[in-house]
Amino acid sequence: MNEREITQTIEEYIKNVSRVLPSGFETEDMLEELRIHISEAFSDKIQKKPLANKIDLLREVLNDLGEPKEIAEEFKRTGVRLQEQGGDDEKAFWLIARFIINMVVVVAASWFVSNLPDAGISFYWALAVFLVFGLAEWFIRARQMREASRIEVQN
């Protein structure tokens, strides 16, 4: 087995672990630690058993690490929360920021549409229509965020 195949096997394992973990900064951090662990355990085993088949040794290392779903279960069980998901203050900030951005876009779009040649719609009519769409989008997003938080707490 050449070095390329060894690297591919390791990366395949890391990919399988990453598939069962939630994406985020901490997961990336942990995957990097797993990669270093594999590299150290593998070279340790090669040193101890220089005549053994490398792929068998690598399989031993991956077997010692456990199935990706075992790691995912422990991740869930220990309650590691993702940093990027942030706290309640951060969520409130983004909710308000999104609302303000929505309103700015609504006003700009209304002005643009009402100034189009042959538009046939006044600024205030366009504003009313876009406002309805903007508010609907904002409420749907807010509901999705609340739903995501609820699922996160359950997990």
């Binding site: 951090d29 630690e33 270093i36 790691i71 220990t78 929360r81």
Partner: peptide, 30 residues
């Protein structure tokens, strides 16, 4: 299963029971 140690280490870091510093490993990466 050795892989399950890492979620525990992360948890202990989050609880501020462990600190982390970095060093170069024997096999190369930090």
């Amino acid at each position: 299963k050795e892989g399950t140690l890492y979620p525990i280490l992360h948890r202990l870091r989050k609880e501020r029971l462990l600190n982390v510093r970095t060093e170069k490993s024997e096999t190369g990466p930090v």
